[in-house]
Nucleic acid binder design. Structure first.
Length: 493
RNA sequence: CGGGGUGUAGCGCAGCCCGGUUAGCGCACCUGCUUUGGGAGCAGGGGGCCCCAAGUUCGAAUCUUGGUACCCCGACCA
């Protein structure tokens, strides 16, 4: 069949690409490394964005917009930051084209060279902190809590739809505070917002933690993150929140006068999640029949497929389901009656499964006579015929069930692939075997050399130092040196 | 940037080695009829700078040279 997708066990990355394409989420564009997000994929992003935006506003943030271009000189002001991004920046050098005098097409006008090159933002810390300098004069201007929804460009060597693209959509929060304590609180608060969103809405369980110095964001003093496990046992960083200390305040000379009249440097945070989360969504819930979308972010909650002969029967069915559609819509659910006569029911069933619509209803003549309807749920692929009476309540409960079932299922999977390991051979065995690979909770002596060595030997990195870990005495998995807590090792995207 | 591979219809491919009339197949698409409780059947039809350029030849999808794009494995990577 044309729509068939590759099995997860057969070829996981092909399975992923098949889902992205066949569920109509996105496709590769003719621009290297850049994707076209198609309407259905974008609808999922819109739902994610809208919910996150609500949560940001509930925690006191406002939106603003800063330029796409950053003067090159800005980027060189924070040494670690430029070090981290320099290798993947797109640079604008000219501002004009002209007709090619030798023939067809256009060429870059050599006369139109920019005096200072512009960098297409890979992230906006520099342009924003350059702006904050003028906005922040007094302790009364703080805290400054701003978020921006934007696109950014990182010139990656190898790209994969949603997971790593040269251009992607995201939000980046950039806040300024009077004290380190407040800034750290903000960093942690936003990590919690991310975790609540990803777990509560996307039904993806995450581990909250902090990055090791080696894995930190370029320019940060501390990087917090949420890490999720995909169905192939690889980790995916689902969101990050950074405590930037006074690094950017120093680089851009952002100071405020405190109550005592003294000048102080401002404390900063930044935090972001991107369209990469859609990749996480796919790889957490979907199966060999296609995408599975949790109800809370689904563009379409319920689809109704009529089983009919001729338009008369279609009209009869529509009349019968109209009230329940109205009721579902009034409760905020998105419902579609698929009256497309050019497609047969089996085709529609397969299509909505591919797109991961949580609940599918089917009604035919048989149901019409009995006042029943067939209810199918996407997550378990089970079907039942139920009475029309009370159907709306039934569906509401079903959607809640699906939401929590998806989370639980993902959590169970993660548990089954999470190991307490104290022995190096076991560590290697688990990480090398793609049927066991997952999160390994092991002791680490805290040295960057050990971290690098383990990465070199196994390709596993320290995904995070979990926030909720209990302290215990142990020995480093590699060196045997003393350690006070376990960290999460995994291979990652 | 190193190693390997592939560019032929929207997608997936055959044809190329061994040059020869109008470039073919499956899916998708369009028209009509019959179908419709899990991916329909029949009939008809549309769609090609065969990656680009130069060369060899009476003749190039096919041979030669150069270029280019993409994919895979490394390296690189919040």
């Amino acid at each position: 069949m044309a729509k068939e997708i590759t099995g997860r066990n057969e070829n996981y990355s092909q399975w992923y690409l098949d889902i992205v394409k066949k569920a109509d989420l996105a496709e590769n564009s003719d621009v290297r490394g850049c994707m076209v997000i198609k309407p259905y994929g974008y609808a999922i992003w819109e739902n994610m964005r809208d919910q996150l935006d609500r949560m940001f506003k509930e925690t006191g943030h406002v939106n603003a917009y800063f330029p796409l271009f950053i003067p090159k000189s800005f980027l060189s002001k924070e040494a670690d930051h430029v070090e981290g991004f320099a290798k993947e920046c797109a640079v604008v050098t000219h501002y004009r084209l002209k007709n090619d005098p030798d023939g067809k097409g256009v060429i870059v006008d050599p006369e139109a060279k920019l005096e200072e090159e512009l960098i297409v933002r890979p992230t906006s810390e520099t342009i924003i902190w350059n702006t904050y300098r003028d906005w922040i004069k007094s302790y009364r201007d703080l805290p400054l809590l701003i978020n921006q929804w934007a696109n950014v460009v990182r010139w990656e060597m190898r790209t994969r739809l949603f997971l790593r693209t040269a251009e992607f959509l995201w939000q980046e929060g950039h806040t300024a505070h009077a004290t380190a304590k407040e800034a750290v609180e903000e960093t942690e608060r936003m990590l919690d917002v991310y975790a609540d969103f990803v777990e509560g809405y996307m039904a993806i369980p995450v581990i909250r933690g902090r990055k090791t110095p080696g894995e930190r964001f370029a320019g940060a003093l501390d990087t917090y993150c949420i890490e999720a496990m995909m169905q192939d046992g690889l980790a995916l960083q689902a969101g990050t929140s950074h405590f930037l200390g006074q690094n950017f305040a120093k680089a851009f000379d952002v100071k405020f006068q405190n109550k005592e009249g003294q000048m102080e440097l401002v404390w900063a945070t930044s935090w972001g999640v991107s369209t990469r989360l859609i990749g996480a969504l796919i790889m957490t819930h979907s199966d060999d029949d296609g995408l599975v979308v949790p109800p809370k972010i689904a563009p379409l909650h319920v689809v109704i497929v009529p089983i009919h002969k001729g338009t008369e029967q279609m009209d009869e069915i529509f009349a019968k389901v109209k009230p329940l559609m109205a009721e579902l819509k009034s409760k905020g659910y998105k419902v579609k009656f698929d009256d497309d006569e050019t497609k047969r029911p089996g085709n529609k069933f397969a299509d909505y499964e591919m797109r991961g619509v949580p609940v599918r209803l089917a009604m035919g003549m048989r149901d019409l006579e009995n006042s029943t309807i067939e209810v199918a749920r996407r997550d378990t692929k089970t079907k039942e015929t139920v009475a029309l009476e009370g159907i709306v309540g039934h569906i509401e409960k079903l959607l809640e069930d699906i939401q929590s079932n998806l989370f639980q299922r993902a959590l169970d999977f993660r548990s089954s692939r999470t190991y307490l390991v104290d022995n190096w051979d076991e560590f290697v065995r688990i990480i090398e075997d793609d049927t066991t690979r997952g999160f390994i909770m092991a002791h680490w002596d805290g040295s960057p050399e050990t971290e690098d060595k383990i990465k070199e030997l196994t390709k596993a990195t320290i995904r995070c130092i979990p926030l909720d870990a209990t302290e215990e005495d142990g020995k480093c998995i590699l060196t045997g040196n003393p350690s006070r807590q376990r960290v999460v090792f995994a291979r990652n995207y």
